[in-house]
């Protein structure tokens, strides 16, 4: 805990928010489904970092337990996501989300 206190909590919040924003921008701007996955993972990792920092700051373990849940769920989500991607790739031969345009208003 002592070494963590050397770096103020605000810095952790700042890094997390920057990482989160990079993730959000990536999801909004990139066209490749795999890159979008990676950006979503980046968002989740930003949350993990923030949770751990807050957890250490408060001296309360539940935040770190939550991080384990996030990691487990993220793994499950990637497993499902990649299989959906493979299914799409089999049918369209691309991972570009621009091809997702069959359904329109």
């Amino acid at each position: 805990m002592g070494t963590l206190q050397a770096i103020p909590l605000n810095h952790y919040i700042l890094v997390s928010v920057i990482l989160f924003s990079i993730g959000v921008m990536g999801v909004l701007l990139r066209r490749n489904a795999i890159i979008i996955f990676m950006c979503i993972e980046l968002m989740l990792n930003a949350v993990n970092l923030l949770m751990v920092a807050f957890s250490a700051h408060h001296g309360d373990g539940s935040g770190q337990v939550f991080v384990f849940f996030i990691m487990a769920v993220a793994a499950a989500e990637v497993a499902v996501g990649l299989s959906i991607l493979i299914m799409m790739h089999r049918n369209t031969n691309t991972t570009d989300v621009g091809f997702l345009n069959k359904l329109k208003f």
Binding site: V24, I40, E77, V80, V97
Partner: peptide, 15 residues
Amino acid sequence: ESSMKYFLMGAFATG
């Protein structure tokens, strides 16, 4: 397409 969009948007919202 439906499943891909649902997945991407759902995971984004979870973030």
